[in-house]
Design a binder for these strands. Structure first.
Lengths: 128, 128
DNA sequence: GCTTGACCTAAAGTCAACTATAGGTTGTAG
DNA sequence: CTACAACCTATAGTTGACTTTAGGTCAAGC
């Protein structure tokens, strides 16, 4: 599959796909004689994995470490799992925090509905 | 309250507090004759609000718009509420997505536990 | 009375994560 | 056989959100 096709399927720009490969976020994609990238199904699975992890907020740096360990083979399994578990916990904490903030926002929206503006009234009194 | 005290209480650097005020994220804080900021309770509530919203991932730009509307008074209530509701929905969607990614990560960690490496095995076969 | 730490501004610097540009090659459709 | 879209590399630029630096003021303790 060409880079253009992968780009469309996963909604990631071709520039970003090349960037991801260059920095080591995706194992090197095989090329045709001409030098053009030819993504295999496995390459696509990596692209999908990386897309998910990025959307979950996991940094490029951490993912580069993971891919780099992966390239070193089986002996790095424990280290790789450690990274995933750490990131899982960070993600879970982030979700909890965002959930709290969602509730905070909901309460704030309610004050608009009910016509009560605690914070705002005070500032208006202050003349700002 | 001085900027240093506010910084400690809310765990935001004094530089960031000044930056937030400069770009319009927090209404202007009253100064003493000397020019030193003196945070009122209401100022602190703004700082807290902004901290929460930033942690929820709401951009500086959106928050600046909100504060700017707020400064224009009551007539902007509807517009302000609209911003909050929009951001609430974006946040809810982001939480859902992150939840999916958490499940994805959990499944991946399970494959490590069980010794099944779908993606990895394929890439090892490939010789990478 | 002077030093020291906390404050001030304006402007420049940093960092992560892309994104765009310049200049070149390839392959396919008319 | 040629034009033109899609690919390539290397390098520079952008964006958002701070952070640091340089150079200065002020107030309290020794």
């Amino acid at each position: 599959m060409t880079i253009g096709e992968v780009s469309k399927i996963y909604d990631i720009s071709v520039e970003t796909l090349r960037y991801y490969e260059r920095v080591g976020l995706i194992p090197e994609v095989v090329r045709r004689k001409s030098g053009v990238r030819d993504y295999s199904k496995t390459d696509c699975e990596w692209v999908y994995f990386i897309k998910c992890m990025r959307r979950a907020g996991i940094s490029i740096e951490v993912l580069v470490d993971y891919v780099s360990l992966f390239k070193q083979g089986d002996k790095t399994q424990a280290a790789r799992k450690k990274i995933l578990v750490e990131q899982r916990d960070i993600l879970a904490a982030r979700i909890d925090e965002m959930h709290e903030m969602l509730e905070h926002l909901d309460r704030k929206i309610e004050t608009y509905d009910s016509g009560l503006f605690y914070l705002e009234e005070k500032l208006i009194e202050k003349g700002q």
